[in-house]
Structure formats: structure tokens, C-alpha cells
Computed example of a mutant assay.
Amino acid sequence: MRILQLISLLLEYPTEALLTAKADARQLVAESPLSEAQQQGLLDFIEQRFSGDLMDWQSDYDGLFERGRSLSLLLFEHLHGESRDRGQAMVDLMNQYKSAGLQIDVRELPDHLPLYLEFLSTQGDENAALGLAEVAHILSVLLCRLEQRNCNYQVLFSALLELSGVDVELDSVREQLKNEQRDDTKEALDKVWEEEMVTFGPGSEQDGCGSSHKPSEKQRRDHHVPLQWTDASQAPGNTVRSGVAS
């Protein structure tokens, strides 16, 4: 599912190289199985972001995804926080990637959403939809938090939810999040940095998600790997804490 490759790139830190691919990005949207409304949302996102100042886009990206935990693109952040369960979940997910033939050629946390989407894009449409369904509850929380900030990144998550085929009760998620305190304020960030940060491997916190992670040529495309997420059939965001939904 090539549209997942595009959304993966759009969720990475924006670069000059990405801006040169505007025409290709628009073409991938037009060829995608998304509804007309979702396609238009993605096209509007591409037009606005690609036509603006790159440094402004980079600053906005940092403010959204690198400041605080509520919009973290690390999926297990929203399931386990900094508990010890997160470390084991990382190991299990990496083993599941390997069982499907995935080779990660950069130091990368396996639960980083762009990497996960890159992986799903190689697994065939049906398996990709299943993989998205398994994290639909997380995607819905991120979507609603971006809505609260009136941020157009929300269209990327809306598209992912449509591709998952899961009918999410977004009004319920919005209700749960309406009184949530933002964790990207100076006071909230100071409190976070007082705590000891958990890492997974040397230099992991310093490694951004570059566009160099690609599946190997031998990666199996017909093998669905059931990942250890919470039950996506449950109401999304059943428990919401400041910066963490599970």
C-alpha cells in the first residue's frame, strides 16, 4: 500500500529533499484507495506544508512531536509509558519484525510510527489494514489531540484510520480528552525532565527517524505479523492520563 509510504514520510522530520517530491506525493494520493474527502485533506496538507517555509515547518514539527509525550510518535509510549513493560514490548516487536523478514538498517526504535507504516506498506493491502486496525485506538487519540490544537497533521491520522477499516467512535475519545492538561508547556516539560528517561539501546534518544529505513528485498509480503497491541476492538483511549493513553 504505497500511500502508507507517503504518510510515513510526511510523519518524518521535514527536509529539503521531501519538498522536491511534491508532484510524486500528489500522485500517490490520487492513486490511493482513500475516499475523495480524505484525498482532498491530504492534498491540502501537502499544498500548505510544501509551499510554506521549511524552517517554520521544522519548528512546528518539533513543537508537536518532540515536546511532551501526548503526541509522541512512539506507539508504546501511549501503551506503557516508561514502565518496564515497554522494554519487553520493544524486544517482542523487534522479534516479530525479524520473523517477517524486516531488516532495519539504521538504529531505530521499532515502535516509531513512520517505521511501522513503512513496514506495513510492504505487507499487502489486507495485512496493512490489519496492522493499522491493531493501533487504531492509538491513532484515534493522536488524531483528537491534534484536533484540539487545530493542527492539520490530523488529516494524516484520519487517513490512517480510514485505511484501517475500524469504525472509531471519535466523539467518545474527544469527550475523554476534553479536560486533559497539555504536557508541552514549560512547567510540564520541566517536570518531565526531572524524571529519569528510559532508553532502549545506545544513542536511541538521539536517533531520529530518517527515510533510510527500508525493508530488504527478501522481506516477505504475504506474512501478517500480529503485534502485541491492546485490543483494538475496545473503546479507544479507555484510560487517558496526562500525556499517555492506553
Rank of each mutant, 00 (worst) to 15 (best):
Q5S: 14
A136L: 05
S216K: 07
S35I: 00
S212C: 13
R149Y: 11
V168D: 05
D111G: 13
Y13C: 05
Q5A: 09
T230K: 14
L54T: 14
P236I: 03
V155R: 00
K178Y: 06
Q96E: 14
A17P: 00
D231G: 06
N238T: 10
Q206S: 00
L189F: 13
C144T: 12
I104S: 02
E175Q: 15
G165T: 07
D171E: 14
D184N: 15
T185N: 11
V198L: 15
S51I: 08
L142H: 01
P226I: 02
R182S: 13
A21N: 05
E180G: 06
G131D: 02
R145W: 08
R174W: 10
A128C: 07
L9W: 04
G63K: 04
V198A: 10
H213F: 12
E205C: 07
L189P: 07
Q123S: 10
L109W: 06
L113R: 09
L75P: 01
R241L: 12
T230I: 12
L42G: 00
G165N: 00
L120C: 07
L160Y: 03
A100F: 05
F50P: 01
L4K: 01
G208L: 11
Q148G: 04
K191D: 06
N150Y: 02
N95D: 05
I104C: 09
H223Y: 15
I7H: 13
L156H: 03
R149W: 04
E118Q: 05
Q148N: 15
E147A: 11
R220Y: 07
L132T: 01
Q176P: 03
G41S: 04
D207P: 03
E194M: 08
L160A: 06
N127A: 12
F50N: 12
Q234D: 11
S158A: 06
L10Q: 10
T199G: 06
R221K: 08
P226M: 00
L189M: 13
L139D: 06
E77H: 00
R221L: 07
Q38W: 00
E118S: 12
K178L: 15
G243K: 04
A188Q: 11
G101L: 08
Q103H: 12
D167P: 12
D60Y: 04
D171N: 15
L102C: 03
S8W: 14
D125E: 15
Q219E: 04
Q219S: 12
R107H: 02
Q88T: 06
D92F: 09
S8L: 10
E108F: 04
D167H: 07
P226K: 11
L132Y: 02
C151S: 14
D44L: 05
S212I: 08
G63E: 06
Y97E: 00
L139W: 01
S99K: 12
P110N: 11
L227D: 00
S51W: 02
H223G: 02
L146S: 05
E36K: 00
E196P: 09
K98Q: 15
R145N: 10
Q176W: 02
L18N: 08
Y153N: 03
D92K: 13
T230D: 09
E126S: 04
D231T: 10
L177M: 04
V106D: 07
I7L: 15
D184P: 03
L93Q: 05
W229P: 04
V192T: 12
R26W: 04
